[in-house]
Nucleic acid binder design. Structure first.
Length: 204
DNA sequence: GCGACAG
DNA sequence: ATCTTGTCGC
């Protein structure tokens, strides 16, 4: 299914200066029987919240590295459908093309919604990289099988870098640029932080 | 057979 | 992802 859907990924520069960006995240109950999925739309200009959609659900699939999207996509699509404001870019918690078959969660959601999308992951799934420079904004190419599949980006000096990879209808440079703009103070972009809070709140 | 393995 | 324990820094 991933090999099939991958053919629908579009490689283009993407929006120059999106006015709205959405963060997506999922939280689980301790026993793994329930979950909450959130999509929070932020205004890029001041990082204020433009819209929020949160839904309760159940895991649609066990956690299997490489098949992660099948676990979270159903609930995230439910949340996306409840949005009032249509975001210009989707920023997912996980990888885009930095995946064994080049079709991680961010690419999957991008194809299903046909919205520009990319992933910001906290740890690597596949790929190797050279040490990243220390200052904020430094980046190193994430390489797998001889091709660049993403970037290891330092969003804060002296803090562990994040893994940025494109999903659909956006280029890596713009994805990194946006990630930096959305992470003025913390390691993770405000989109991810806002979504993480929203779904965690609904779960508890 | 052994190590790696998004969230 | 979630839980636990401990340390560092503002």
């Amino acid at each position: 299914m991933q090999d099939e859907l991958r053919s629908r990924v579009i490689d283009e520069p993407g929006p120059e200066a999106p006015a709205t960006v959405a963060g997506l995240d999922v939280a689980y109950s301790p026993d793994d029987t329930r979950l909450a999925a959130a999509v929070v739309v932020l205004n890029t200009a001041d990082l204020s919240i433009a819209d929020t959609a949160v839904v309760r659900g159940v895991p649609a699939f066990p956690y299997v590295p490489g098949l992660f999207a099948f676990r979270e996509v159903p609930a995230l699509m439910d949340a996306l459908e409840r949005l009032t404001v249509r975001p210009e870019v989707l920023i997912c918690d996980g990888h885009g093309l930095a995946h064994p078959r080049r079709f991680g969660l961010a690419a999957h959601l991008g194809v299903l919604t046909d919205l520009p999308s990319f992933g910001v992951g906290k740890t690597r799934l596949v790929g190797d990289w050279e040490p990243v420079g220390e200052p904020r904004g430094a980046r190193s190419a994430l390489i797998d099988g001889g091709e660049t599949i993403g970037a290891v980006l330092r969003t804060q000096s002296g803090v562990k870098p994040v893994f940025v990879s494109t999903g659909h209808r956006i280029g890596l440079d713009r994805a990194c640029e946006l990630t930096l703009r959305l992470a003025p103070r913390y390691r993770l972009p405000e989109t991810t932080r806002a979504a993480d809070r929203a779904c965690r709140d609904l779960l508890s």
